[in-house]
């Protein structure tokens, strides 16, 4: 049984630009999938088509047995509560405290009235505190988010996704704006979530070495097309160079050696 089935997913902007071209893949529950590819390849568009932040031009997306591509209104909102999302720029409300931002993850479960007033139950607040402590921000619960470092902000983003109690996490370049140390903390956190909570993780990455180290499975995207789908151990340097274009060969010289050394 697959958790996510993507079938001939196509996204067009206008008549000319083809952002995603007939992408098909399946994801099993509990997999840790890394999507790699150069900037502008369509990785972010792909993730946003999965929770319909972007409308799909043609093709089908099934998540947990539901056809996501045709959902609208309340049904779409209910569907989105099942999928957490983490962003490159954290996308927090910077003026609010950590706990307020984390509780935003519960808004999808709220009716109109409770949502507008931001009414959360005692249980939800306790869950939020527990999750904030589990990502190591116990000291910062009431701090405003603009006082946090980048790595801490991203952990708030992860906590916000986790209080949704999602079945899957979509991570859009979660470490692209972070230093190596914070990046490692974030990727380790994602792996723990994947292994301990059994939540499926789909993560867009620039860094091939990171993808090779953490992922169970690698998907390569180039100019909107799926060019690799399989075990990270089976991808060849040649294929990596193909995904990123020949000119960039020097930049990721022997990623496997760096992977082995790390």
């Amino acid at each position: 049984m697959h958790l996510l089935q993507v079938d001939s997913l196509t996204k067009r902007y206008g008549h000319e630009t083809l952002a995603l071209n007939e992408i098909s893949f399946d994801v099993r529950p509990g997999e840790f999938v890394a999507i790699i590819g150069p900037s502008g390849a369509g990785k972010s568009t792909l993730l946003r088509c999965l929770n319909r932040l972007i409308d799909i031009s043609s093709g089908q997306v099934h998540f947990d047995g539901v056809n996501v591509s045709s959902l609208r209104g309340a049904a779409l909102r209910r569907q989105r509560t099942q999928i957490g999302m983490i962003f490159q720029h954290y996308n927090l409300v910077n003026r609010l405290s950590v706990i307020e931002n984390v509780l935003h993850g519960r808004l999808g479960y709220k009716g109109t009235f409770a949502g507008i007033l931001g009414l959360y139950s005692e249980q939800e607040k306790q869950d939020a505190v527990r999750i904030i402590e589990s990502v190591g921000l116990g000291e910062q619960i009431y701090k405003r988010c603009d006082q946090l470092s980048g790595g801490q902000k991203q952990r708030v983003g992860i906590a916000r996704a986790l209080v949704q109690q999602p079945k899957m996490l979509l991570c859009d370049e979660p470490i692209a704006s972070l230093d190596p140390n914070s990046s490692k903390i974030i990727m380790d956190t994602l792996r723990e979530i994947n292994q301990n909570l059994g939540i499926t993780v789909l993560v867009n990455l620039h860094q091939v070495d990171v993808a090779l180290r953490y992922a169970d499975r690698l998907i390569g995207i180039k100019r909107g097309q799926l060019v690799f789908d399989g075990d990270p151990n089976l991808i060849t340097d040649h294929q990596i160079h193909q995904i990123y274009g020949s000119e960039s060969g020097d930049l990721m010289l022997n990623p496997r050696e760096r992977y082995a050394a790390a």
Partner: peptide
């Protein structure tokens, strides 16, 4: 940015306006 994040959680339009 934060509106995108709240849309992704499934929050409704009025909740997004009042909370974000």
């Amino acid at each position: 940015d934060s509106v995108e994040a709240l849309r992704a959680t499934g929050a409704g339009y009025l909740a997004i306006i009042s909370q974000s």
